[in-house]
Design a protein around this nucleic acid. Structure first.
Length: 271
DNA sequence: CAGCACTCCTGTTCGC
DNA sequence: TGCGAACAGGAGTGCT
């Protein structure tokens, strides 16, 4: 399931192939994604040249000529691959962006939680304009988390997963970051000290950058732009390790459900 | 506004 | 062995 490191891995994988490439044809085999693919999308894309792709949170953004930007979200089962356009599409290969270079960018998404949209003004788009800072932005630090969390009764885990606070922290990395910081996921966000938020901000950055360095976490079916898995899974300390022993203190890892999401933590190392 | 529950979807896993 | 049920989850939406 793509989280920020997977999206970043995808961005780096596809960029060399799509940047400065002209779009020959848009092929939509299934338009029913999270939101329908705009019916007039091919008019915006065909014949246009793609600029330098970028990322905001988990959204991949491909500048299209001078007219706008293609927004792609991978949802939780989506992936993008560079393929030979003649390669027969598999099940759930919903969209191809055929390039003049002789390759195609192919969007695959079994659960169809992803989306492909077009906007003339990406930074003002409702899905992007209210997002919190990037975890590697200078404004994101312990003081930021501390300030934002005052008087918040929600759990610290739900708090750091809120993309209006900080983008890119999904379910896996929320558990892993809280473990690294030694903070119990059930603790109320508003009751955590500045010192602990300093640790947490650093933990989030450390966990995310380590995962990016490993090519993302392959849990079930994530593959990068060349179809290879990521290797961060072997590094996970608590996620999906219920009942297994903490790598630090050998206490069994616990699992509980918070807001319909599984949370994993070590009851000895985290308080 | 804050804090929830609900919703979309299909592949995988589980229980009988 | 086969079947249906439960489960997984990013994040927008809508209700209290």
């Amino acid at each position: 399931m793509p989280e920020l490191p997977e999206v970043e891995t995808t961005l780096r994988g596809i960029s060399p192939y799509v940047s400065q490439s002209q779009i020959k044809q848009l092929i939509v085999r299934e338009s029913r994604l999270r939101w329908p693919i705009p019916e007039d999308l091919s008019q915006h894309l065909e014949g246009a040249t793609i600029g330098v792709p970028w990322r905001r949170g988990k959204y991949l953004l491909l500048p299209i000529g001078t007219s706008g930007t293609l927004m792609i979200h991978l949802g939780m089962s989506g992936s993008l691959r560079i393929v030979d356009p003649d390669l027969a599409p598999r099940k759930h290969d919903h969209v191809d962006l055929v390039l003049e270079s002789g390759r195609a960018l192919r969007f695959h998404d079994p659960r169809r939680f992803g989306c492909i949209l077009f906007t003339e003004t990406p930074r003002e788009h409702p899905l992007l304009r209210d997002l919190g800072p990037e975890p590697f932005d200078t404004v994101f630090d312990g003081r930021f988390l501390y300030r934002q969390s005052r008087k918040r009764k929600t759990s610290v885990k739900a708090f750091i997963m809120d993309s209006h606070m900080v983008v890119g922290v999904g379910n896996i990395y929320a558990s892993e970051s809280l473990f690294a910081a030694g903070i119990s996921p059930t603790r109320a966000a508003g009751n955590i000290s500045l010192a602990r938020y300093e640790r947490l901000a650093q933990a989030i950055q450390g966990v995310l950058s380590a995962s990016i360095a490993q090519g993302g976490t392959t849990l079930r079916d994530f593959v990068n732009a060349t179809g290879n898995p990521g290797y961060f899974r072997q590094t996970l300390n608590v996620y999906e390790r219920e009942g297994e022993l903490c790598r630090v203190c050998e206490t069994p890892v616990k699992m509980a459900r918070q807001a319909q999401r599984a949370t994993y933590w070590c009851p000895h190392c985290q308080s």
